[in-house]
Amino acid sequence: MTVILPPLVVDVRVKEAGTRGFRIWFPFVLLWPLLIVIVGFALIVALLVDAALCLSGARYHHYSLLLLKSLHLLAEVRGTHAHINSPDSLVDVDIY
């Protein structure tokens, strides 16, 4: 069984020439409880829609699977790093 683990921390640093710049270090883990509630609610709705579509004979009835795979896609963002250093700006994005 695949464990879906959304990002834990998102770290964004932006600095432009002549400015102080800013840094957002956001512990995404704090949003997990909210995410669980939203996904749980959406999953129930999607399951009901899928069941209705299946009973009505529709060929496509995979909305709940689509939702889970979308969450999986979000989880796979972990490990993304981008570092851009141009003469005008410096941007760092790290997702753990």
Binding site: H62, K69, H72, L73, G79, A82, I84, N85, S86, P87
Partner: peptide, 23 residues
């Protein structure tokens, strides 16, 4: 310019799998 980007291929894998579920 100095650019270093690292993207997990698991993201590509998950994205491609997701395409098969799009209505």
């Amino acid at each position: 310019d100095q650019v270093d980007v690292k993207v997990p291929l698991a993201l590509l894998r998950a994205g491609l799998k997701l395409t098969s579920l799009i209505p």
